[in-house]
Amino acid sequence: MGMLNNWDVGGGVSDFWDYIRQPRPHRWTSWGVAVVLALVVFWGFGKYLIPYEKPKPQIIYFENWKADRSEAEVRADWIARAKETTRENARRRAEYQKLADMMGVPYDSSKADEVTRETLGKEADTLIAKKPEPPKRSTLAERAARGPKPAAEGPTRP
C-alpha cells in the first residue's frame, strides 16, 4: 500500500529519455512506423467508428396563395386542413383500437370520437369503427357451477 502513495514520475521519465537518445539501428524507422500506425488507428476511428454524414440537400415545398384572398377563403382553407387532420387522427385511433383489442388492453377513445363527430358530421361514422363486444368467456368457476356436460350419444368402446 505504501508504493501507491509515493509516486516518482521523474525517474521513469529520465530512464525513458535515456533509452530514446541511445543510437540504435532502425531507431528512426521504428519511430516512423509507430507514428504512422497511431495516425492510421486514429484516422480509422474517426472515419469508420464515428461516421459523419453530410446533410443531404432538402427541397421544401410550400403553398403559395394569392395576396388578395378573402377572409372567407382563408377560413375555408383552415377548416379543410383541420378536417383532414381529424380524419387522419380518426384513422390512427382505429388502428390503435385494433391493436389494443388484439392485446387485450382497455382503450377508450369516446371523447376523441365525439370531437370527430362534431367536426366531420356523418362522415365520422365511416371512420369510427363500431366496437364489437368482446366474446364472453366463461370462467372456470362458472363452468364448474353448471356441472358436467352430458356425454355425447354414440357408440362407446367396451
Results as ranks from 00 to 15, higher is better:
D113T: 09
A152T: 12
M103P: 01
V105S: 05
R146I: 00
K149N: 12
N89Y: 01
K66C: 05
A151Y: 09
A112E: 12
A124W: 07
S109Q: 13
P134S: 10
E153N: 10
K56H: 08
A82Q: 15
M102H: 11
E142L: 00
G147E: 04
E142P: 02
K111V: 07
T139P: 05
E114D: 15
A90W: 03
R87Y: 01
L99T: 05
D68G: 11
G104F: 11
A145F: 00
A90Q: 02
D125P: 00
P134V: 08
A80H: 12
K149H: 07
E114K: 04
T119Y: 06
P55Y: 01
I60M: 05
R92C: 02
L120A: 08
M102R: 08
D77P: 00
T126C: 07
S110V: 05
R91W: 11
D108K: 04
P134L: 10
K136H: 12
T85N: 10
V115F: 10
K111T: 07
W78D: 13
A141H: 01
N89D: 07
E88T: 11
G154H: 08
A152D: 13
S109A: 15
E118D: 11
R87T: 02
R91H: 03
K83N: 14
K149V: 04
S70R: 06
R91P: 03
E114L: 12
D68K: 09
E84L: 11
E123M: 03
F62Q: 15
A76Q: 13
A152W: 11
A152N: 01
D77S: 10
A141F: 08
R69M: 12
P55G: 01
K149W: 06
P106Q: 09
S70G: 14
K56A: 13
A144M: 13
R81F: 04
K131V: 15
E88C: 01
K122P: 15
K122M: 08
S138I: 06
D77C: 06
R143N: 07
N89R: 14
S138M: 09
D77V: 03
E118A: 14
A145H: 01
V105T: 12
T139R: 03
D113C: 04
E63T: 14
E88I: 12
G154T: 11
S110L: 00
K111D: 07
K56S: 15
Y61H: 15
D77M: 06
K136E: 09
A129F: 01
E71I: 06
L140V: 10
